[in-house]
Every structure is written in structure tokens, then in C-alpha cells.
Design a protein around this nucleic acid. Sequence first.
DNA 1: CCCTGATTCGC
DNA 2: GCGAATCAGG
Length: 209
Amino acid sequence: MSWTDERVETLKRMWAEGQSASQIAKELGGVTRNAVIGKVHRLGLSNRAGAAPARPAPEAAAAPAAKDKPAPKPEAEQPAAAAAPAPRPEPAPASRPAAASPAPEAQSAAPPPPSSRKAIVPAGQPLPPQPSANEISPEALASVREVEKTAKRLTLMELTERTCKWPIGDPATDDFWFCGLPVQQGKPYCEAHVGVAFQPMSARRDRKR
DNA sequence: CCCTGATTCGC
DNA sequence: GCGAATCAGG
């Protein structure tokens, strides 16, 4: 795969959106996160908001000796960076593009409690893609079935923070185990199970009787 | 252990 | 220019 304009564009966009290099690599396909990071650097768009610990000076290493080591120029870094001391108006930790709320009218939630309350957190994102369907997507179901074939079949005691805790089988029988595949970070389940565990919203109607 | 980005350097 | 290997940190 090569860095076509299109791919570079996607890279730029996603990087700007705060997507991680691995996510971008996954999206692009055919490249590793290393490749993405390398490209990001070469493109000169490195540090996103203040999240870069910035490797301290690696320090000019030892002796170049006789090899082809042109005189190491101490200062020869990014020319562009220096010229643009980007002022950072918003220290917002969230790198999400502010949701467009064209409706200035009331309607919006978030009734700000007058006071006497601990500062309420700004509130989460507007949960964008919410398919109205309360059904599990066919793909999700399919992948679950697929996954259950390759699951690690862990026992309760074998579960860790990083193993999918999705139960499979009947607890009343020996045929019961936990998925055990690597969890999706921050979630209790693997990707496939997260897909079915966190449904958009369940319209669990009380049975219509 | 999982992840993140940063840097180096042979290609 | 590219990106694997490596590094440093969370």
C-alpha cells in the first residue's frame, strides 16, 4: 500500500479527530500503526493538543567515528514547527469535534442545577450513531457465533481484566465457560461480544399482553 | 499485559 | 519516503 492522496487525507482527518494511530491504521488497512505514526511525523503534523510527552533530547550519541556520519547538526529540526507557535485557545481535553447543535432553543437537556451541587461534568457526547433498530445487527450475531468457536473457554477463575467475560453455555452444566478472548479496551467483553452486549438502546417493551 | 506516540535507521 | 524495531510512558 502506498500513501495516496486519498489515504493521506484520511490519515490527516482521523489524526485531527484524535483517533489513535492504530485506529487509523486499521481504518486504512495495509499499514501498521507504526507506518501511520511515521507518516504523521513526516507530514509534520505531530503533536496534537498537549498530549505529547515529547521525548527529551536523545542527545547526540557517541562517536560517529569513520563511517558516513555527516557532521551531526545539533539544530536542524522542523522548520515549520518553529514558525507556527500554534496558540491553543481551547484546552479542551476532549478532542472531539463539538457536536453541532443547531438548535439554540430550549429543548436541550442539561438543566444546570443552580448551585449547591458539585460541579457536574460537562456531559458526554451526543451518542451519534444510534440506529433506531433495537435489534442486534446480523453481522454482530454472526461474529459472535464465529467467535464462540475460537473462544478460549476460560473458567471463572481464569478470567482477568483483559479477558472477555461473556458467558457461554449453560451454567448448570459442564458446558459452561467464558469467552476469554482479548477484551476491547475499557470494556468487559471482546469486540464481538461488545457488539451484542451494548445495544443501542433496548426497547424492552414489557411484553405486550 | 494491554495500549499510546516518538525516534531511529536500514532500506 | 517508508516503516519495523525500539524506546518511553500510561
